[in-house]
Design a protein around this nucleic acid. Structure first.
Length: 350
DNA sequence: AAATCGTGGTC
DNA sequence: TGACCAAGATT
């Protein structure tokens, strides 16, 4: 029987998914490698994020900042605003840190080895292996959620994640070929994304159908096992939307660390079981009938929205007024955007 | 080393 | 509606 990795590469030659940042297998075999900057950008954006969601953001970032030098010179607020809506905002902060490190310490050139890549901000084991293999054709092994699932099924491993990760990583490493490691990395992930899917895997058309232990055992659909998670609690808070008579909005940039770190938002209370009021100005407040609901990874949020219109002489205790012309709701993370969508129409346009 | 950190789609 | 899921990293 032929090498498993070669079987998969044959499948990939025909079924590779097209992506803007990707070089298709024919061109790669002819010696063309992708732009490492574009690959890095895509891999950071793809962390815990679907290809569909990344598409337009990758296009936008490559258009706004075509080189690592341009990105390194960008304003923090501009990068955060461009990332708004994509989630996991620490990625955007680390994206900038990484770009500046590459420019300042690596002469603007991405390091071409796993160990050095791993030291850069926002680049962990997966991303270091992905850049190494995809951008430089180095024989490193990517282990993402797809690879974990494919390996668990191929070897019918029932030990639950995340505990089984080292064993799955070792299985993946044993299969990584010396030739075309970049195509192979993309091939396993494409396989997981299109054939070896979490539910209802298409075993009938899988290039690894014959050697797959879980298919033989009939356990493919129930793998990989995962340790159960706690159910998500609900937290409550108050958001204050203040409009000044000249049309300006009262906003604040959130602290660098923590939830929505570095992003623009409305002043508000802490989020918890019973929030304490924390109005940013002393004025008459109006409470909206409808609250903003949003679900984060580990809790549900319900925000009571309070609004007010104030005069030019008012000095808020928190936040800063942003002139009407300088404010774009698209710069808000989704939770804050939902607040705006509810409150905005109730506040008279100046 | 378990928790934290977004969002949109799906079933 | 709610739980799960998607090319994880950081602390």
């Amino acid at each position: 029987m032929r090498d498993l990795s070669l079987q998969l590469l044959d499948w990939y030659d025909v079924h590779a998914r097209a992506m803007p940042w990707r070089v298709p297998p024919d061109a790669r075999k002819a010696g063309t490698l992708p732009n490492p900057y574009a690959v890095w950008m895509s891999e950071v954006m793809l962390q815990q994020t679907t290809v569909a969601a990344v598409h337009e953001y990758h296009n936008k970032f490559m258009s706004l900042w075509p080189t690592v030098h341009k990105l390194a010179a960008a304003e923090d607020a501009d990068v955060m605003a461009a990332w708004a809506g994509l989630g996991y905002y620490a990625r955007a902060r680390n994206l900038l840190k990484c770009a500046r490190t590459v420019v300042d310490n690596h002469d603007g050139v991405f390091p071409q080895n796993y160990e050095t890549l791993l030291m850069l901000p926002g680049i962990g084991p997966y991303t270091a292996a992905a850049i190494s293999s995809i951008a430089f054709d180095l024989p490193e092994t990517v282990v993402d959620g797809n690879v974990e699932r494919v390996m668990a099924r191929l070897h019918d491993i029932h030990d639950p994640l995340p505990g089984s990760k080292p064993a799955l990583t070792e299985k993946a490493r044993a299969l990584t070929p010396a030739k075309r490691p970049g195509d192979y990395a993309q091939a396993v992930m494409d396989l997981g994304a299109t054939i070896c899917t979490p539910k209802s895997p298409a075993c009938g058309i899988c290039p690894w159908r014959d050697p797959c232990d879980a298919r033989i055992a009939g356990t493919a659909a129930e793998l990989p096992k995962k340790t159960p998670k706690k159910k998500t609690p609900t937290r409550f808070g108050i958001a204050y939307v203040v409009r000044r008579s000249d049309g300006a909005w009262l906003l604040e940039t959130r602290p660098e660390s923590g939830l929505l770190g570095g992003m623009l938002g409305w002043p508000g209370s802490e989020w918890g079981d019973a929030p304490e009021p924390a109005p940013p100005v002393d004025t008459d407040w109006q409470t909206l009938n409808e609250e903003a609901r949003h679900t984060f990874t580990h809790f549900h949020l319900r925000l009571t929205i309070m609004t007010a219109t104030v005069g030019l002489d008012v000095a808020p205790t928190r936040g800063e007024f942003v002139k009407k012309a300088d404010f774009s709701p698209t710069a808000l993370p989704t939770a804050m955007r939902k607040v705006f969508d509810l409150a905005g129409p109730t506040l008279r346009d100046a």
